[in-house]
Design a protein around this nucleic acid. Structure first.
Lengths: 166, 166
DNA sequence: GCCGATTATATGCGTTCGCATGTAACTAAC
DNA sequence: GTTAGTTACATGCGAACGCATATAATCGGC
């Protein structure tokens, strides 16, 4: 069923094979990311937002408490100055509100404005439908759950890794 | 074999649940992509190349025949003008060679120079090791194979999709 | 309470990007 | 052959990016 080598071969697969396996998997994953991102980018659902804009609005929409810039930075693939200016633009467009943190004068509290929340919801509905259409056409429910599980494992930081060689 | 829900359960599983499953999986996959890309970007293995530069060199290294720009464009997440100028820079740096296509005067044939090939190999070895370290620390062999298999399915174009509702 | 280290964010600057569009070559119908 | 349409790539231009660095506030010894 799987693409695993035939049972009975090298009981402790050569590290070479394991390296190869990992690199092939990563290359395939990159290909999938590119194909899907391209598809979603071309969708006509963004309403003036870039996908990065949406990423920030979506991240903010998931948090009750206002977020700081550095918190957003953990989720978005963007440099700190890049994120700073991206948020600037969203504030200027009235989609994100920034107010001073009373407990830390360095930080700013960021949150969605009503308009930002409405836009995120509108775009999110359409984008979510497109994501579902693309993924459900290619993977079964079991496979979707598996993809999520594998992705979560890949997201683990170097700490809390399941140890292997004690 | 098909993507039908487990026999006996809600004969037509709520489309809501399936949509949710797909969106959760995509969100997790994006998180994994971000975490790993950040990690790999921070690696000290690039030797003056951006990851996009490397992507182009790697793609060229896999092809015997010289490639056209539009062929590269299918693999790289970049607009056509963006790729055109990226290749310009690689040519200027002596890493990529471009020569006229005798059968089509519009197109250019791109290939690695010796220097480009050497650089790609050097960087590729180090990057490949980093990729393997990150992935094998988080996934078993079976999981790596599974990730590759799922990723390939996700990369399928809209044509040749396994049909579902005849 | 003072001072070096660290953290949170912003800004200057040169590079790179995407969009719109341009140019040139191929294709096909007549 | 002429011409309309398409394909392959390049270029002008304004927006966005990353790197280095600045600014300002907090934290930790002492």
């Amino acid at each position: 069923m799987t693409t695993a080598p035939v049972a009975g071969t090298a009981p402790r697969a050569s590290s070479r094979g394991r390296t190869r396996l990992a690199n092939d998997a990563w290359e395939a994953a990159l290909g999938a990311h590119t194909a899907l991102m391209r598809r979603f980018t071309e969708d006509d659902v963004w309403d003036g937002l870039s996908m990065r804009d949406y990423d920030v609005l979506y991240t903010l929409s998931k948090c009750d408490a206002p977020q700081r810039l550095s918190d957003l930075g953990r989720h978005v693939m963007l440099s700190q100055p890049g994120l700073s200016r991206l948020v600037d633009r969203l504030v200027e467009r009235g989609l994100v509100g920034r107010c001073a943190d009373p407990t830390d004068a360095r930080a700013a509290h960021l949150s969605l404005t009503d308009e930002g929340r409405a836009l995120q919801r509108r775009v999110g509905r359409a984008h979510g439908a497109s994501v579902a259409a693309a993924l459900t056409a290619r993977l079964s429910d079991e496979e979707l759950a598996l993809l999520e599980s594998l992705s979560r494992k890949l997201s683990l930081p170097d700490d809390d890794l399941p140890e292997e060689t004690p």
